[in-house]
Design a protein around this nucleic acid. Structure first.
Lengths: 159, 159
DNA sequence: GGGTCAGTACTCGGATATTGCATGTCCGAGTGTCCTCGG
DNA sequence: CCGAGGACACTCGGACATGCAATATCCGAGTACTGACCC
């Protein structure tokens, strides 16, 4: 179980778009060049972020991508959820009810989720809570050097 | 990103083996029948748990599987780690260093992990901590009805 | 000068490989238990 | 009655097939800006 690589890409794009806010929108070609990523696939991932209301895209020759909201209003959790289809880490298949082990049980016994499922859900909530407690703005602030370098390099790139 | 189904199987097997402690070892055939799972693949997953020192297997006609340790000494985290190859949820590929965006940076800038990686790691730690705080014994205690039904059904199965 | 029109550089969404991992199956070899049979 | 040996029911580990989701690429259509051209 590993997270999709697109999550890392998406988060870096969000942070970079935040840093380049005054220069937005940024075209997909430049973003792909920026991180040395496959352009078409990156575009697909960013489209997912647009569907989630995190990014917006502008068509046309001066078009490109920019944050749909101020970065302090975008949590890391939102980005992860948008890029992972909001799926749960753990998916209980109610194994306990199947086969010989589940025979002869009172129906009420399965009304509540099983202990395993509960523990998993608690752990997942802790994970989500942590992710939700950080925003793109937090990430931007964590690396002032990165912000500066980004602006400098982007200036050089666009001439 | 979804957890392998084998994790659910493994945990249910551990709990069931805990409940049936006095009747262990339990053969893979019975376990597979018990949960209506593919026998060969289940075996593979249990072998992984054996490698991690969580289960032991006994060969021979009265052989089968049993817990390698008392259930209060087996955390849910251990089972998950054993079945997921201990891989991290998030794997930083250092995208920030690649492409045009990373050019002209001081080497010292990349000495520390990037903010994204840090946030992910914190979240993952919260998840792990939660999983490590529960043991198989906890899970066993959560469902006294399940314990009783298991013993009853197993008795019927083995005659 | 201002309106029209084509060109350009982007976007989108859908369709289609390719890849890798989770899932699932099969087989040969090894080992402990039980049963049988001969002494 | 007891010990040797074979049958059996399990185990292990590796090899192989399948399915699906992540990754990657391509294409046709739409849209906004730019510049040229014409009235």
């Amino acid at each position: 179980m590993r997270m999709s690589e697109g999550v890392e890409w998406g988060l870096h794009c969000c942070v970079t778009l935040g840093w380049l806010d005054d220069r937005a929108p940024v075209s997909i070609r430049r973003l792909a060049l920026w991180f040395d990523l496959p352009q078409e696939y990156l575009k697909k991932r960013l489209q997912a972020l647009a569907r989630a209301g995190i990014l917006t895209s502008a068509p046309g020759v001066r078009g490109g991508w920019s944050l749909a909201r101020p970065p302090e209003k975008i949590t890391v959790m939102e980005v992860v959820a948008a890029l992972e289809d909001g799926l749960d880490l753990f998916c209980c298949t109610e194994v306990r009810q199947k086969g010989a082990g589940g025979e002869g049980a009172a129906p009420s016994e399965f009304a509540k989720p099983c202990g395993i499922s509960s523990v998993m859900r608690r752990a997942e909530l802790a994970w989500r809570r942590e992710l939700a407690s950080h925003t793109v703005a937090d990430l931007m602030e964590r690396s002032p050097q990165g912000a500066e370098r980004t602006r400098r390099n982007y200036l050089r790139m666009t001439g």
